[in-house]
């Protein structure tokens, strides 16, 4: 059994003739939480999508628990960007969370009482049990984000890939979500979070990937999250400790 949850080597993704990700590498050990940071258009979302096979990879070796993603995908939970779906879709919070179980359920089977209980538990974990039957367009941004998180939790995955789970979220929700993610890490899971706020990196993450098409630096926050690396990533004078972009 390997201690590495996710291993990306030399990942290159291009749209037409323009690389959006160039020779990026990242190693994510189990029991850690990794922040992926970089300016807009740095390829953060693309990196997650490359792991999930959602974008074609020009070059690169991607291993999940020492194996291909296809073989290990039931151990991977994905939280897409909140803005990537139509929240006016006719469904409620519980139903969205149940979607996390569709893969395990298999073809033709509908979720039953057991699955409902799992989904309710996940909603309880994210503090959303009171909103089970609420139409999803009637949830605030932070609540929608928590529903997405519950959907990933219910998968009971070992590796979580999350695209901006703190986007548009109020301070209380942000604390709740981070507490949950730290619990996941403490339970031995690996968590990768695309993040945009430089202020909170040191508090939130064990490890960090600074990305701007290429991996500028990656590793433990203490050694990697330096002024020099952050400036090299964002292309301007940046201070890792105090300044946000």
């Amino acid at each position: 059994m390997t201690d590495v949850a996710l291993d990306i080597q030399g990942c290159t993704v291009a749209y037409h003739d323009t690389p959006v990700l160039w020779d990026a590498s990242l190693t994510v050990p189990r029991g850690t939480i990794t922040g992926v940071l970089g300016p807009n258009g740095a390829g953060k979302t693309t990196l997650l999508k490359a792991v999930l096979g959602l974008v074609p990879v020009a070059s690169g070796r991607i291993q999940v628990f020492g194996d291909t993603y296809a073989a290990q995908q039931d151990r991977v939970g994905y939280v897409p960007q909140r803005g990537s779906v139509d929240w006016d879709f006719p469904t409620n919070a519980l139903d969205v969370v149940l979607m996390g179980l569709y893969g395990q359920l298999g073809w033709f089977r509908r979720p039953g009482a057991h699955e409902n209980e799992q989904a309710r538990q996940a909603l309880r974990d994210v503090g959303m049990l009171d909103y089970t039957d609420r139409q999803i367009s009637q949830l605030s941004g932070g609540q929608q984000q928590r529903v997405f998180l519950a959907r990933a939790l219910v998968q009971d995955a070992d590796l979580y890939l999350m695209d901006e789970p703190l986007q548009g979220v109020d301070a209380t929700t942000e604390r709740t979500i981070m507490q949950l993610l730290h619990n996941l890490r403490d339970a031995g899971k690996a968590v990768v979070v695309v993040h945009h706020d430089l202020h909170t990196v040191a508090d939130y993450f064990d490890r960090v990937l600074l990305l701007n098409k290429r991996a500028v630096a990656s590793g433990p926050v203490a050694s990697v999250f330096t002024d020099a690396n952050v400036s090299a990533t964002y292309g301007t004078e940046m201070r890792a400790s105090t300044e946000a972009h």
């Binding site: 999508k49 999930l52 096979g53 959602l54 296809a70 995908q73 039931d74 991977v76 994905y78 897409p80 990537s84 779906v85 139509d86 879709f89 469904t91 969205v96 979607m99 996390g100 569709y102 893969g103 959907r151």
Partner: peptide
């Protein structure tokens, strides 16, 4: 799932 969030469906295999 196809109608609501196809990328997520793909991630479920």
């Amino acid at each position: 799932l196809l109608s609501f969030n196809p990328d997520f469906g793909h991630s479920l295999g």
